[in-house]
Structure formats: structure tokens, C-alpha cells
Design a protein around this nucleic acid. Structure first.
Length: 882
RNA sequence: GGGGUUAUAGCUCAGUUGGUUAGAGCGCUUCGUUGACAUCGAAGAGGUCUGCAGUUCGAGUCUGCCUAACCCCACCA
């Protein structure tokens, strides 16, 4: 910072790039394994390679960077492992969209060519998100950057898959799964989003074979009638009991459907009779198994009707629904159509309505993995912050179902299973070409793994597992995982399961959960609403520091927050305030010797006060960082910097700085300004890395960067309760004088006489020694200090603070009416307070049970207020006598 | 059907081992270009902390219930 011609407005544009580059060049982000040092490590939640930085990333990574920078300054060997996720379906969709512009599909290219295209795409655009993270200020160890499909991660994936298979925890089976007709792939249960939508309940009657009797069933998806292979009723339902064992004739199709009794059926819902379509409904699938009903697939993977659908074959599923209902109606089978709201599953990626379908897929048996994962959290080895997420997590794991991990897409980790014509299936760590059993040619399973399979291994795959690397030794388990509550199931739970299964240890000690950043109306930011705010736009206009500070203040762990430009501006103003305070210090550091150490007696009251306040701020910031209350830590810094350092200390230091005669006093003021500013910058650095570096670099100091300076220690010896109390008395008096002056419209520049009637000699001394502050900050001139016994001045405005009566004499007559009203108002609130306190002190229970210091505090307050009341009462009497 | 979160000043939010005259930012009112800052300074107005009950000497803070909003989970056709 140049001392001259420096802008009064902080310009982030001109400094941010410079310092990020500097940090990278100095390799300050890089962590080497140093077994003797205490580790602190975080693995980044890998953003999708296709991704663009959004507010959620900005928040998530700010929270991580704050902890990383703080721990680094505390001397930990600090690793922030960065990387990106290959994001199977999302990326594939992106590249397919690109192909579609040329009128091509992935099938036109073929698998190999397509994958090549995706890699090309990755190389071209995959760095976008990481460069955006850099502009946020993220101090990741970029030399270690990983990708879920790089060689090492792929090796880990292969090892885990084969190992789980060998343990019998991965199996292949024909099961009913969620199928997305648009993505043309199976999905896991949690990739399906349920949305309650108004729909219809169609009642259709089926004739009993060889009888005129009918049974009416209800369905929300009439097209599945074509796949019915049975009808179920409750075994004890007297309405239908006699029919169990008989058959119904399926309308239009004519197929005979056995009537079975099954406890699953709720007799009180609908008609009490349920059509069973084992191939297209998960419950029906189970019932089908119990009663050996056949599975008839009537739909194709793309959502059109299959050949089994007879005359409806080839129709789209909804077209078929319409046509079939029309036919049923015409033929007299349709009984009625009710309105019926029900939850419809949608594909998380493309929002297409999911079809439950039977297909051959790979699954992970979850129960054996889930048990230890629950234990790790309930035992406290892993702690969620906030704690309430523990319950959400455990509930999910307790009811977990097997995880469908195969996807019928091309971009991802290909399943390491090979099939031979001889019927052999080989799951192998190495790629194979021939069958070990018959020597015949084998073909690899065409499917790839769910993206979250590789993400689950991220904490150890990025550190070189399955090798036993020094990185794993030092940095695993990681210290904390920072993420949003929306991916606890997708990612957090699975990492814990895999960590315990393959590293025999938890992947992280804390899970720090944050909420969503919403728009100013509380809506989710989304592309379709167009209400998203681009963090890069904020960074461009206001700087990364401002964005970071805005994101972490005014929001508490685990809760959502709203984005307001007004709040961005408030943060910007704070940065600017700091900038100008620093400019002031630098402008007044001329001639200062950083080696200067003031003798203790040279410290003024203001010096002692600010050093004491600063020390408490160190404790507060550190304590809150430890508790993951980053917002509270930020707030403490904001208040210290603005309300104490700027509003008071700098103002009080001015007279000493401008007086070049008193060399020692000036040097002491410089020393205190310098040391407090420098250490405050350190405390603020994790939150606002750029501006603090920029300012720090202009201050005299040792070391290359504030980034690797030492976190301020809590120097308890600097805490000075007496100085704080005395300083408070001075500040109270200043505020009271300003108030009186404002009350009677004394022009700001005009000096006015002030008389202070002070109760004790000690306090009298404090005020006479520090009267210059009243002069400079309250324009009090002259100041007359009166003893407790002195006569009260006449014709003056009155205020009473703790132990001090303040009189502002007026040249003309005071406005008796106005002044009386003002003092009466003051008296009212005083009386109310006193009533409350004396009520409390008169309460035997309070005196008997409250802790001594609380009682003392109340008593002191009572004395203080009583004194005030006496002074004001006297004043009111005087006013009345006029 | 289960589970959770939130309810504090006009707006957005802090307030974490129960004891302050309940705070901040923005907005509002009145002043203010004195050598850091108008992205600023000074003074001020504004709250029965959703409601009810309980525990306690003492509740914004703990417990229960009510109301309202939001969210997650769940295979009722």
C-alpha cells in the first residue's frame, strides 16, 4: 500500500489475482507429509467436472477454506485435497446435448468414440470449476488434484468392487428397479425424487372366470393392466375370501389371473382388491415372488409399449394409457375415475417420470456395511455438526435397502465383470480377454457404476489407496468433512461405510453440515426459475472476500440462508472500513521502529483497553472456530474492528499521533496500532484472505505471507478488567455528552463547557487523566471536574452515567418543560428497572439460590440506579423550582 | 404415515453450558465535507422474543402442547 495517492476505496480487482498467484508460486497451499507435525486435512466434495461454481459451492468451499487457513496458521500440517467428479449421467447428458446439435446420438459414435469425446470435453471444460474455486480464494493443494476417473481412483474402485464381490456383498440379480426412460438406465432409490401430484385412480372391473361376478380393482397407472398376472385380496377379507384360488379374466387381453390372498393388501383402501403387475411395480414384484406369478414386461426401456402389450405395442406409455382407458370404457370395464393425489417418482437428473421395471442389475448388500456406520456415529467417533443430523443419518441407515450400482450408460467406471458363452461370470481386478474356465472369448459387462460408488471412496482413493501411502498414514482419517445436508445419504453415509470397510477406520471425525443458499424470497436457486446468482458476478463486482464474509455471517450451521445484495454491500462496506483503518495506520506509521517495545507504564488507558479487548477477541474467534460457529467468529471480528478499533481506539490515538513533541507517547500509540492491526488481520485472514494479505504486506513484519504467519496467541496477561471498566466510564460519558448536545442542537463543531460531578476520587482521577478524550470526541471544553460534595450547577442539561453526573451549562435559559419531560422519561425507565431489581432481591428464593456473583451484580446495579435516581430527582426538583 | 427445521425490530438474521436495560445489518428520523473512511460519522425511533401451560429463585434460552410456514423420509394399489 503506497502511503500517498492511495484510493480511499478498496479495489479487490487489483489485488486478488496478484495474491492468489503469489500464494501458488510460493507453494503455500502444498502439504508435504511430515510425520512429526500434527495433521489437519479435508477432502473437497468433488464438484462435477461439468459444473459451474454456484452459491452452494461458494459457501461450502468458503467454510472449508476458513478452517484450512486457520489450522495452517495454527501450525498444523494442513492438507486440502481438491478434485472433481466425473458425474456419470450429468456429464453424459451434457456431451449428448452437444452431439445433438450436430444431429448425432451417442449410438452414432459408438461407445469408444463417445467416451473419447467425453474425455475431450473434460480436458476442454473440466478446469472451469477449479479455476472458479481459485478465484474464491480456496487454498487447495492443487498439486494433488484428483479426478474420480483418474488412474488411482479407478484402481481403488476396481479393488473395492472385486473385494465386495468376493465377500458376497455385491451381487447381480433380476430385480425391480427405478428406470428412467429418458436416461435409459436404472437408478438407485435415492436418485428418484417423489413429488405429490394430482392424478387419477381408475377403477376397472375384472370378471370372475365362469361366473357373472366381477371384482373391481383400482390403479393409478392403467397401462400396467396389460402386465397383470394376478389379483390380490386380504386373506381375511370376507368380501373376497370365497374367490381366493379362482381366476379373473383380464379385460381386453383375456389372460386368466389367479386370485391370491396376501397380507400386504389393505382391505380398507380402494376396493380391497389389488391388481398385481410383478414386472412393473415393486410391491407387486414381491407379491409375485410370494405367489409364483409370472412377470410380463409390457414396456420397453425407452418408455414405449413392448410387443407384449399387443395392439398397444409401440405407443408411448401415456398414449397407451389414454387409448386403453378409452377401450375399457367402451367395453364397459371402466367403473369410475376418481381424483387421487399421489407421489410420482422423477429422475433426479432429467425430471422424467420413473418406471419401476424388472431388469438385471448389480447391487451392494447394504446391511452389513450399514451396521458399523451407524455405530461410528452413535458412539461419537464421528460427530455431526449440528448434532441433529445424526438422527437423520442413522434413521436412513437403519432402514437401508440394497444399492443398485449398475447404470446403463457409457461414461463411468465400467463394471469389472466378464461373461463367457460357457455361462461363466468372472469378476476380476485385471482386465481379461479369455475365460479362465473354458478358454473362450469373454465380453465385459457393458454397464458402468453409479458415480457415487467412486465418490464413496474419495477420502482414501485420493490418498493413494489401495497402496499404504505416507499420505494415508498422515492424513487419514481426515479432520472434517464439509457439505450440504442434501447429500448426507448420497455421499456422507457411503463414505463412512466404505471407509470402515476398507480402511477399518472412519473417513473423518466431524461432518460439518450447512444449508442451502436461497434467493431473497427463500426459493431454491435454480436454472429453470432463473433466480440463481452467479458467485463469479459477485466476486467481479465486490471481490471474493466480500462474498465469503457475506456467506458465513448471518447464517448458522445446518440452516438455509437467503441471498441479499444488501448483505453483500454490508460486507463490502466492512472490507472498505478495514481498508481505510489500515490506511490510517500506515499513514501514521512514519518514523516508527517495529523493534520498539513500550515500557508498561507508557500504555495509556486506551492502549490497555484495546489490548484487553483484542485479547478477548482472539479467544472468542478461536473458540468459535473450534465449535464450527464460523459466523459468530466473523461477527466478533466485525464488531471488534468496527466498533472498538475504528470507532474508539483510532479516534483516541489521533491526538497522540499528531503530537510529534511527545515522542514516547506517539511511538507507543504507533506500536499499539501496528500490533493490534497486524494481529487482527491474522484473525480475519481465514475469512477475508485477499484484503488481509494486501494490507499485511504493507506493514512492517517478518515472513512471506500472512497465510503462513502464526495465529495470535491468547495473551491472558493483557486482559485488564479495570482498564475496561474505566474506559467504559469514559465512553459512556462521551456518549452522554453527545446526546445532550444533540438534544439541544449544539452545532457539531462548537465547543461547550461540561461539568462532571464524580462520586469517587479514583474515578475523578480517571477522568482528569483522560479528559482529552472528552475534549476531542465530545467537543467538551472546558471540562470542570467537581467533587461529590460540590454544588450542582444551575441552568444546565443533565445526564447521569455510572458514578458520574454530567452537566451541560447553557448560556441562555434551558427549556424547562422539554428538559423536565426528558428527565421524567429517563426516570420512568429507571424506576421500572429498579422495581425489577428490588423485586428480585426481595425474593428470598433468589437470594438463597442464585450464585453470589449474580446477586452481587444485581446489588451493584441497584446501587448505581439508586444514585442515578437521586441525581435525577434532585434535578427535577430544581427544574420545578424555576 | 413417520421425522425434522423455523417462528426475536418494517425486512434479513445473531443471541449454545438459563441471570445484559434482548443485539446487528438494511430501511426509517434528525444532524454532520474538522488531516482513514459519505462504501463514512454522531444522535435517535422501533421488539409483551408466535400463543398457552410447565420446570426454576430466575426462561428469548429448558419441557409439553397449540398454531403457522418450510423441508426430509416412506412400496398404500
Amino acid at each position: 500500500m503506497e502511503e500517498k495517492n492511495i484510493s480511499t476505496v478498496y479495489d479487490p480487482q487489483s489485488v486478488e489475482k496478484k495474491w492468489y498467484q503469489f500464494w501458488e508460486e510460493q507453494q503455500l497451499f502444498h502439504a508435504e507429509v511430515e510425520p512429526d507435525k500434527k495433521p489437519f486435512s479435508i477432502v473437497i466434495p468433488p464438484p462435477n467436472v461439468t459444473g459451474q461454481l454456484h452459491m452452494g459451492h461458494a459457501l461450502d468451499n468458503t467454510l472449508q477454506d476458513i478452517q484450512i487457513r486457520w489450522r495452517r496458521m495454527q501450525g498444523y500440517n494442513t492438507l486440502w485435497m481438491p478434485g472433481t467428479d466425473h458425474a456419470g449421467i450429468a456429464t453424459q447428458i451434457k456431451v449428448e446435448e452437444m452431439l445433438a446439435q450436430d444431429g448425432l446420438t451417442r449410438y452414432d459414435l459408438g461407445r469408444e468414440e463417445f467416451i473419447k469425446k467425453v474425455w475431450e470435453w473434460k480436458h476442454q471444460y473440466g478446469n472451469r470449476i477449479t479455476s472458479q474455486l481459485k478465484s474464491l480464494g480456496a487454498s487447495c493443494d492443487w498439486q494433488r488434484e484428483r479426478f474420480t476417473m483418474d488412474e488411482g481412483c479407478s484402481k481403488a474402485v476396481r479393488e473395492v468392487f472385486v473385494s465386495l464381490y468376493e465377500q458376497g456383498l455385491i451381487y447381480q440379480g433380476n430385480r425391480i428397479t427405478n428406470w428412467c426412460p429418458r436416461c435409459n438406465t436404472a437408478l438407485s432409490d435415492i436418485e428418484v425424487e417423489h413429488e405429490e401430484k394430482p392424478g387419477n385412480l381408475f377403477h376397472v372391473r375384472y370378471q370372475v372366470e365362469g361366473s357373472e361376478e366381477y371384482v373391481t380393482v383400482a390403479t393409478t397407472r392403467p397401462e400396467t393392466i396389460l402386465g397383470d398376472t394376478g389379483v390380490a385380496v386380504h386373506p381375511e377379507d370376507v368380501r373376497y375370501q370365497h374367490l381366493i384360488g379362482k381366476s379373473l379374466i383380464l379385460p381386453i387381453v383375456g389372460r386368466l389371473l389367479p386370485i391370491v390372498g396376501d397380507e400386504y393388501v389393505d382391505p380398507s383402501f380402494g376396493t380391497g382388491a389389488v391388481k398385481v403387475t410383478p414386472a412393473h411395480d415393486p410391491n407387486d414384484f414381491e407379491m409375485g415372488l410370494r405367489h409364483q406369478l409370472s412377470e410380463i414386461m409390457i414396456m420397453n426401456p425407452d418408455g414405449t409399449m413392448a410387443d407384449n402389450a399387443g395392439k398397444y405395442a409401440g405407443m408411448d406409455r401415456y398414449e397407451c394409457r389414454k387409448a386403453l382407458v378409452a377401450d375399457l370404457k367402451e367395453l364397459g370395464y371402466l367403473v369410475k375415475i376418481d381424483e387421487h393425489a399421489h407421489a410420482v417418482g422423477h429422475c433426479q437428473r432429467c425430471n422424467t417420470v420413473i418406471e419401476p421395471m424388472v431388469s438385471k442389475q448389480w447391487f451392494v448388500r447394504m446391511e452389513p456395511l450399514a451396521k458399523p456406520a451407524i455405530e461410528a456415529v452413535t458412539s461419537g467417533s464421528i460427530q455431526f455438526v449440528p448434532e441433529r443430523f445424526t438422527k437423520i443419518y442413522s434413521n436412513w441407515l437403519e432402514n437401508i435397502r440394497d444399492w443398485c450400482i449398475s447404470r446403463q450408460i457409457w461414461w463411468g467406471h465400467r463394471i469389472p465383470a466378464w461373461y463367457c458363452g460357457c455361462g461363466e461370470t468372472i469378476v476380476s481386478r485385471q482386465d481379461i480377454t479369455v475365460c479362465p474356465k473354458c478358454g473362450g472369448a469373454v465380453e465385459q459387462d457393458p454397464d458402468v457404476l453409479d458415480t457415487w460408488f467412486s465418490s464413496a471412496l474419495w477420502p482414501f482413493s485420493t490418498m493413494g489407496w489401495p497402496e499404504n501411502t505416507p499420505e494415508l498414514k498422515q492424513f487419514y482419517p481426515t479432520s472434517v468433512l464439509v457439505t450440504g445436508y442434501d447429500i448426507i445419504f448420497f455421499w456422507v453415509a457411503r463414505m463412512i461405510m466404505m471407509g470402515l470397510a476398507f480402511k477399518q477406520d472412519i473417513p473423518f471425525k466431524h461432518v460439518f453440515i450447512h444449508g442451502l443458499v436461497r434467493d431473497s424470497q427463500g426459493r431454491k436457486m435454480s436454472k429453470s426459475l432463473g433466480n440463481g446468482i452467479d458467485p463469479l458476478e459477485v466476486i467481479e463486482k465486490y471481490g471474493a472476500d466480500t462474498l465469503r464474509f457475506m456467506l458465513i455471517t448471518g447464517n448458522t450451521p445446518g440452516n438455509d440462508m437467503r441471498f441479499y445484495w444488501e448483505r453483500v454491500e454490508a460486507s463490502r462496506n466492512f472490507a472498505n472500513k478495514l481498508w481505510n483503518a489500515s490506511r490510517f495506520v500506515l499513514m501514521n506509521l512514519a518514523g516508527f521502529d517495529p523493534g520498539y517495545q513500550p515500557a508498561p507504564e507508557q500504555y495509556t488507558l486506551a492502549d490497555q483497553w484495546i489490548l484487553s479487548r483484542f485479547t478477548k477477541t482472539v479467544s472468542e474467534v478461536t473458540r468459535n472456530l473450534e465449535r464450527f460457529e464460523l459466523g459468530e467468529a466473523g461477527r466478533a471480528l466485525y464488531e471488534f474492528i468496527w466498533n472498538e478499533f475504528c470507532d474508539w481506539y483510532i479516534e483516541m490515538a489521533k491526538s497522540r499521533l499528531y503530537n510529534k513533541e511527545d515522542v514516547a507517547s506517539r511511538a507507543t500509540a504507533q506500536f499499539v496500532l501496528w500490533t493490534v492491526l497486524q494481529d487482527t488481520l491474522k484473525l480475519l485472514h481465514p475469512f477475508m484472505p485477499y484484503i488481509t494479505e494486501e494490507i499485511w504486506q504493507h506493514l512492517p513484519h517478518e515472513g512471506v505471507s500472512i497465510m503462513v504467519s502464526v495465529w495470535p496467541a491468547e495473551r491472558k496477561s493483557l486482559i485488564n478488567a479495570q482498564a475496561e471498566q474505566n474506559m467504559n466510564a469514559i465512553m459512556e460519558a462521551i456518549k452522554a455528552i453527545r446526546n445532550l448536545r444533540a438534544e439541544v442542537n449544539v452545532p457539531p463543531g462548537k465547543k461547550s463547557e461540561v461539568l462532571l460531578k464524580i462520586a469517587t476520587p479514583e474515578l475523578q482521577a480517571v477522568f482528569s487523566e483522560n479528559s482529552q478524550y472528552l475534549r476531542s470526541l465530545a467537543a467538551a471544553e472546558p471540562i470542570v471536574i467537581l467533587s461529590a460534595q460540590a454544588e450542582k450547577p444551575e441552568n444546565a442539561m443533565t445526564a447521569v452515567t455510572n458514578g458520574v453526573e454530567i452537566y451541560l451549562p447553557l448560556r441562555g435559559l434551558i427549556d424547562v418543560e422539554k428538559e423536565t419531560a426528558r428527565l421524567n422519561k429517563e426516570m420512568d425507565s429507571l424506576n421500572k428497572e429498579l422495581a425489577r431489581i428490588s423485586g428480585k432481591l426481595a425474593n428470598p428464593g433468589f437470594v438463597a439460590k442464585a450464585p453470589a456473583d449474580v446477586i452481587e451484580k444485581e446489588q451493584a446495579k441497584q446501587r448505581e440506579y439508586e444514585e442515578k435516581r437521586v441525581a435525577i430527582t434532585e434535578r427535577l426538583a430544581y427544574l420545578a423550582s424555576l
